[in-house]
Amino acid sequence: MPRVGEAVIETRGLRKRYGDVEAVRGIDLRVERGEVFALLGPNGAGKTTTVEILEGHRTRSGGEARVLGFDPERNAVALRERTGIVLQHTGLEPYLTVAETIDLFRGYYPRPLPLDEALAVTGLEAERDRRVRRLSGGQQRRLDVAVGLAGDPELLFLDEPTTGFDPSARRGAWAMIRGLRALGKTVLLTTHYLDEAQALADRVAIMARGEIVTVDAPARLVAAEDASLIRFRAPEDAALPAALAPRATHADGYVELRSPDPVRDLNALTGWALAGGAALAELTVSRPSLEDVYLRLTGGDGGAEGEA
């Protein structure tokens, strides 16, 4: 029986150093049984390194790590029997069929997932007897997941599961991941896509520069971002009301205003517009998205950081 609240992954002060570069700088992480937990962050934030330490592919330079109660560095085989790993770039034997490939991996585990179930969860029933080299990109990615599920793992590591998917394939993959949660699996998901994290994850950890900046449910991260965004078209030299002018920023012919109290600010703004005959063209008021939270926490254009 799944015991809710039990930690499946737990780290304390986890560190990884490559020469002079500290890729992971002391992170504390706790993932509970049955959660879909997303790790977000720009390239070079230390996501992949963190996940590879938890998978047992890398050794850590410092700190504690427990995965399903095991030290991932030590109990390699015992741990691998209970985890599934779906990496970003991995190959499969091109001349075997889908069913043979899943069967090959099922044979490595003491209590494998039945073949039909692995095919059904990943929607590969029709491709069962097809050679791996004849699969489309999306089908190969689903086969990656099927292979990750071959051992009926308690914990599944999913690294960028929908990169390169078209929108409908992405929706399909999301349905598949929700299906995994329904089966009681714990999923550690790394992704670049904020909408993916928002749609799938119970909790999100945002990483930047080797540290975890924040951890929470996506909806609460967004709710905690107090400021709404008021935006309208106006010339740069427009004389805004005195109460608003200090907080306004100008960009590409628009005025943007971060507002913790949009009702009051809009009242001031519309009063000013009516009095002065300003149009407030293209006026929008929006709640922050996970993307806004992410960009603020990771320091803006996070993609500019180097690969670590």
């Binding site: 998978e55 047992g56 592919h57 085989v77 015992a78 691998r80 029997e81 790993i85 990496l87 770039h89 991995t90 190959g91 499969l92 034997e93 991996f105 490595y108 585990y109 292979v147 051992g151």
Partner: peptide
């Protein structure tokens, strides 16, 4: 070839000695 294609890394993630 299998190392470059990630075949070997995937095998290392499975409980196969």
């Amino acid at each position: 070839y299998d190392r470059d294609a990630g075949v070997l890394k995937r095998i290392r993630g499975a409980p196969l000695p």
